[in-house]
Simulated scan of single mutants.
Amino acid sequence: MTAFADSDDPLRARDLCLALDLPILPKHTEGIRSKLKRLVSRGILTEIEPGLFSQPRPYPDTERPELLRRGAARVAAAQCAQLG
């Protein structure tokens, strides 16, 4: 997961093999690819296009209105607590 955190770009199984100092052999790249697909199925990674994997990036608060509403409610509660 550190390789994904350090990279701004999505990675392929081959790129991850290089990051892990594994030889670029089909048995290694296919093994890594199957592990990456398992992480996708568990929601830990996303597959942007076939064979291209990345960590899901959180949305900025401005793109998720439900978070803005929750944030506004927290601010209002904090202001009421200060007044009370």
Score class of each variant (00 low, 15 high):
residue 25 L to R: 10
residue 37 K to F: 10
residue 84 G to S: 13
residue 26 P to W: 02
residue 76 A to G: 11
residue 2 T to G: 05
residue 7 S to P: 08
residue 3 A to W: 08
residue 70 R to F: 12
residue 60 P to Y: 06
residue 36 L to W: 01
residue 78 A to T: 00
residue 50 P to H: 14
residue 77 A to V: 13
residue 41 S to V: 07
residue 24 I to V: 04
residue 72 A to L: 06
residue 49 E to G: 01
residue 65 P to T: 15
residue 78 A to I: 04
residue 80 C to D: 15
residue 52 L to D: 09
residue 33 R to A: 07
residue 35 K to T: 10
residue 46 T to Q: 10
residue 65 P to W: 13
residue 39 L to M: 12
residue 7 S to F: 14
residue 73 A to Y: 02
residue 20 L to N: 06
residue 24 I to N: 04
residue 48 I to N: 08
residue 81 A to I: 04
residue 69 R to Y: 11
residue 74 R to S: 10
residue 54 S to P: 13
residue 68 L to H: 01
residue 18 L to C: 14
residue 52 L to R: 09
residue 31 G to Y: 00
residue 25 L to Q: 13
residue 23 P to V: 02
residue 16 L to T: 09
residue 53 F to W: 09
residue 53 F to S: 09
residue 30 E to W: 11
residue 26 P to C: 07
residue 73 A to W: 01
residue 29 T to N: 13
residue 59 Y to C: 14
residue 23 P to L: 06
residue 42 R to G: 12
residue 10 P to S: 08
residue 49 E to Q: 10
residue 64 R to N: 02
residue 70 R to L: 09
residue 72 A to F: 04
residue 39 L to W: 14
residue 72 A to M: 06
residue 48 I to K: 07
residue 46 T to C: 05
residue 32 I to A: 04
residue 77 A to M: 12
residue 80 C to Q: 14
residue 76 A to P: 07
residue 62 T to H: 12
residue 10 P to Q: 03
residue 64 R to T: 05
residue 84 G to M: 07
residue 79 Q to T: 04
residue 66 E to Q: 10
residue 33 R to W: 05
residue 10 P to Y: 02
residue 38 R to Y: 10
residue 33 R to F: 05
residue 15 D to C: 15
residue 73 A to E: 04
residue 4 F to W: 06
residue 66 E to T: 15
residue 21 D to K: 11
residue 58 P to G: 02
residue 16 L to S: 11
residue 36 L to T: 00
residue 42 R to T: 15
residue 78 A to E: 06
residue 3 A to C: 07
residue 55 Q to H: 08
residue 35 K to I: 10
residue 1 M to Y: 00
residue 43 G to A: 02
residue 63 E to C: 10
residue 83 L to C: 07
residue 37 K to N: 04
residue 71 G to V: 04
residue 47 E to Q: 05
residue 42 R to C: 14
residue 60 P to Q: 03
residue 24 I to Y: 06
residue 31 G to C: 11
residue 24 I to R: 01
residue 47 E to K: 07
residue 52 L to V: 11
residue 60 P to I: 05
residue 59 Y to V: 14
residue 71 G to A: 06
residue 2 T to N: 04
residue 59 Y to G: 14
